[in-house]
């Protein structure tokens, strides 16, 4: 299943580049809007990179199930004797690998463009590494819920915002703490704790949501 998803993504490699490009564009816009002052940019760099990455992921979440619904693959998934939660877990993992990982790879570059100090960048990456899978997992539940509907783009953002707020807070908190030279381990541990819970329960919730959404 994982292989299938990765293979599919590879056949459509152009699509992977889109969120990355989007993230770069948004990040480039900020200095224009705020002025090229180093100190100001430096102070908000961590937050900008985080929010940009999350928005770019939101862009890809929407399409997570659409093609599978259109060609009927999702029916075959639901009918498969394998546990649906496991299959969806694989799908979420593939989504993270194809859409979040490229963004994380490019994040140091974005951070450097905004003059984020070098020692903070590893913390930012760590925070992203923990926050992005959380977003994939939570997003998958919501996308599954909207699977049976036609219009979902804006609705998805509306539903996702309250759910991903803790992730943003802790991730940004860690980066800010690192920037001020304060210990940043506490928010990172909270983030990790939430992620562990999400890994355990989100695929199950996603399967439940999908069953509700597909049933006509």
């Amino acid at each position: 299943m994982l292989r299938r998803e990765l293979l599919l993504a590879w056949r459509r490699r152009g699509d992977i580049a889109m969120p990355v490009l989007y993230a770069v564009l948004v990040t480039v816009l900020f200095p224009f809007a705020l002025g090229p002052e180093d100190t100001l940019l430096q102070r908000i760099a961590g937050g900008i990179v985080l929010v940009t990455v999350l928005l770019a992921m939101l862009l890809t979440l929407d399409a997570m199930f659409t093609s599978d619904i259109e060609d009927g693959s999702l029916e075959q998934l639901v009918l498969s004797p394998q546990p649906l939660a496991l299959l969806l877990g694989m799908k979420i993992l593939a989504h993270w690998l194809t859409s979040a990982l490229p963004l994380i790879v490019i994040a140091p570059l974005l951070a450097a463009m905004l003059h984020l100090p070098g020692p903070v960048i590893p913390v930012l990456l760590l925070a992203l590494l923990l926050a992005t899978p959380l977003l994939s997992l939570l997003g998958a539940i919501l996308v599954a819920l909207t699977a049976g509907t036609r219009r979902s783009g804006m609705l998805l953002a509306l539903m996702l915002l309250p759910l991903c707020m803790p992730a943003v807070i802790f991730a940004a908190g860690a980066v800010a703490a690192a920037q001020q030279g304060l210990p940043w381990l506490a928010p990172i541990s909270w983030l990790a704790a939430i992620l562990v819970l999400a890994i355990a329960f989100a695929p199950l919730a996603c399967a439940g949501a999908l069953r509700i959404a597909l049933d006509a």
């Binding site: 909207t146 049976g148 509907t149 036609r150 219009r151 609705l155 509306l158 539903m159 006509a216």
Partner: peptide, 14 residues
Amino acid sequence: GVIGLYHAFEDRRQ
């Protein structure tokens, strides 16, 4: 979100 999702479905019970 709840209200929006409710109205996004054609079938109201669903």
